[in-house]
């Protein structure tokens, strides 16, 4: 029986260590030609924002979807919604609007309004939002949306013709306004639905202005699609009178204030208000 070459074992281990050291440290696999999915999270956010800005400009949803698929988000809708809320919180109303508009479009709706032609208008939005003193619009919890099944692979070649973004419709009119005494809703909740008169289709991306003595708050429909794509809400403080209108004009609802309600046991609480705005 031959004698086993025990000295080969440490040589093997040494060689293995040298090989691994070379492969992992000295000459690791070089990454070139990476995909957007490999980007750092903040760069992904920037990429997503540019996709939304591009969509706001050309209204090309399939292309926006194929671009979003490149980022490898498990839930593109949620990624857009979350980023829209972060952008709104940081005062970037333009980016927030564009992201929310694309998120709403992913839910199967066409964009409701054209993107602003200038960032100046949205800069004003950001300024006034920063001055607000009322609790901001509550963040939403959104429903899952799997885009991976739609566009799993990047196909850069399709260049469809540009889809013109629909022009804004007629000014909004008040359809209904009703006080609601529901103990299960947050006190002072203002619920707003924006919809079309003819088919009652809800309209996302509508900018609403809530004003009161000494303050103003702007918010958008479409951030809570699990309730409605044309839905937006805000919290009204008791004993304060508010005015509500759409930013692009139309009826102004005056003297909105939470109704006083009573529970079954006689306790009082502040109810909510439901408003439906319609346009042709």
């Amino acid at each position: 029986m031959n004698k086993f070459p025990w000295a080969a074992i440490p040589a093997l281990i040494l060689g293995l260590a040298l090989g691994l050291g070379y492969a992992w440290v000295l000459a690791p696999v070089e990454i070139v030609d990476s995909s957007p999915a490999s980007l750092r999270a903040d760069f992904k956010d920037g990429y997503r924002a540019v996709i939304a800005a591009s969509y706001a400009a050309n209204g090309d949803l399939p292309r926006a979807q194929s671009r979003l698929a490149l980022l490898g988000d498990a839930d593109a809708y949620q990624a857009l919604s979350g980023q829209a809320q972060r952008a709104l919180a940081s005062g970037d109303a333009l980016q927030s609007f564009q992201l929310a508009q694309l998120a709403s479009a992913l839910q199967g709706l066409a964009p409701a309004a054209p993107a602003p032609t200038s960032t100046e208008a949205m800069a004003q939005v950001a300024t006034s939002t920063a001055e607000t003193s009322v609790p901001p619009i509550l963040p939403n919890t959104s429903t899952p949306f799997d885009t991976s099944a739609l566009f799993p692979v990047y196909t850069p070649t399709p260049r469809p013709t540009r889809t013109p973004i629909p022009p804004p419709g007629a000014p909004f009119k008040l359809a209904t306004q009703e006080p609601i005494c529901d103990e299960n809703l947050p006190e002072g909740l203002l619920q707003v639905f924006a919809m079309l008169t003819n088919n009652r289709r809800q309209i996302p991306g509508v900018e609403l202005i809530l004003s009161w003595a000494g303050g103003e708050e702007r918010f958008f429909t479409g951030f809570k699609p699990e309730i409605g794509n044309g839905y937006a809400d805000a919290i009204l403080a008791p004993n304060t009178l508010y005015n509500l209108r759409a930013a692009d004009g139309g009826a102004t609802l005056s003297d909105l204030t939470p109704p006083a309600c009573q529970r079954a046991n006689g306790e009082s609480f502040w109810g909510s208000i439901k408003v439906i705005l319609q346009r042709d």
């Binding site: 070459p5 080969a8 074992i9 040589a11 060689g15 293995l16 070379y22 492969a23």
Partner: peptide
């Protein structure tokens, strides 16, 4: 044997690392 083992180790290391 030692040289062969050393070379095999390097080869295996590169294969695993790359």
């Amino acid at each position: 044997w030692v040289l062969l083992a050393f070379a095999a180790g390097i080869g295996l290391g590169l294969l695993y690392g790359w």
